[in-house]
């Protein structure tokens, strides 16, 4: 399978924050959800993929090309949405379009008008009067109007109401009907991912924890719940993290089969949500320090 985005051994240091030896690969024709808490390096990673930041060491390649020689070629083929408004807010959408369209060889006014109509966006009102949702729709319209092969979005659903989030997922599904398109987006609203993401890339404290497909995650991870008497030091080591209360324990395992062998019918095993995985991984990282 072809990789559209590849980061290899990327390092990037900031004051008090590092991206460490970060390697990921995003597969062509699929949706990859990029998850992690706030301030763990999601936006930084996306900025490196967009060449807004350069890594201190390591390589970034998009469509198999490097930014040093192919910057414009790469960006012609990317549609982007950020979580802040990056449009001139004293202009109208129409005026903004007039500026952006000249940057792209494949700009398609029909497509633009299609999305403007679909999203019910006003063309003549100043962008500064837009609500957060409209702003996001405006950015998305720009991102989708030049036949981009790769759509990169940083927290596109944050601050949006559930109805629009659902509509957005439908649009993404529609987009994915074309097998050549790839979507990479960061989010901390993980319920969005169950319906659309094929792969999940999980980052924590600047480190790549895993990239797995949704089915693998379901097959490997499980929440185990049971009585405290079942736990001892050795068994606790087998979990990513354990949460104990007076009434019992709850833990996350990354090896469901093994947990089934050890505990059999003595515990309840549940399918974890991505939030569970994020929560316990963070907890685990703290416990092991």
């Amino acid at each position: 399978m072809e990789n559209i985005i590849e980061l290899k051994n990327v390092h990037k240091s900031f004051k008090g924050f590092d991206i460490k030896n970060f390697s990921i690969a995003v597969k062509k024709g699929f949706v990859t959800g990029f998850i992690g808490g706030n301030g763990v390096g999601k936006s930084t990673t996306i900025k490196m993929i967009m060449n807004l930041l350069q890594p201190d060491s390591g390589t970034v390649s998009v469509f198999g090309l490097n930014y040093k020689e192919h910057e414009k070629e790469i960006k012609q083929r990317i549609g982007f949405v950020y979580d802040e408004n990056i449009l001139y807010d004293h202009l109208s959408l129409n005026q903004m379009k007039d500026i952006v369209k000249h940057a792209y060889e494949n700009w398609d006014d029909h497509l633009f008008n299609h999305y403007v109509e679909l999203f019910d966006l006003p063309l003549k009102k100043k962008i500064k009067t837009f609500s957060k949702g409209m702003m996001m729709k405006a950015s998305l319209t720009m991102a989708l109007s030049h036949h981009a092969e790769l759509i990169i979005m940083d927290e596109p659903t944050s601050g949006l109401d559930p109805i629009f989030r659902r509509e957005l997922l439908e649009i993404l599904h529609q987009l994915m009907q074309d097998g050549d398109k790839t979507i990479f987006f960061s989010t901390h609203i993980t319920t969005d991912l169950d319906m659309i993401a094929d792969y999940i890339t999980f980052i924590h404290n600047g480190e790549h924890i895993f990239t797995k497909d949704l089915i693998e995650i379901e097959e490997e991870y499980a929440i185990v719940k049971g009585g405290l008497e079942l736990l001892d030091r050795e068994i606790e080591q087998e979990f990513l993290a354990v949460r104990k209360s007076n009434y019992g324990f709850e833990a996350l395992t990354a090896n469901k089969g093994r947990a089934e062998e050890v505990f059999g019918d003595m515990v309840i095993m549940e399918k974890p949500t991505l939030e569970d995985i994020m929560y316990y991984t963070k907890k685990g990282a703290e416990q092991h320090v």
Binding site: L169, H173, Q174, M176, I196, L214
Partner: peptide, 17 residues
């Protein structure tokens, strides 16, 4: 697979599998 994924509102990898 892509059509089915869209219609059922599930990820592509699910219908593919």
């Amino acid at each position: 697979m892509r059509q089915l994924a869209k219609d059922l509102n599930v990820s592509l990898i699910t219908t593919k599998r």
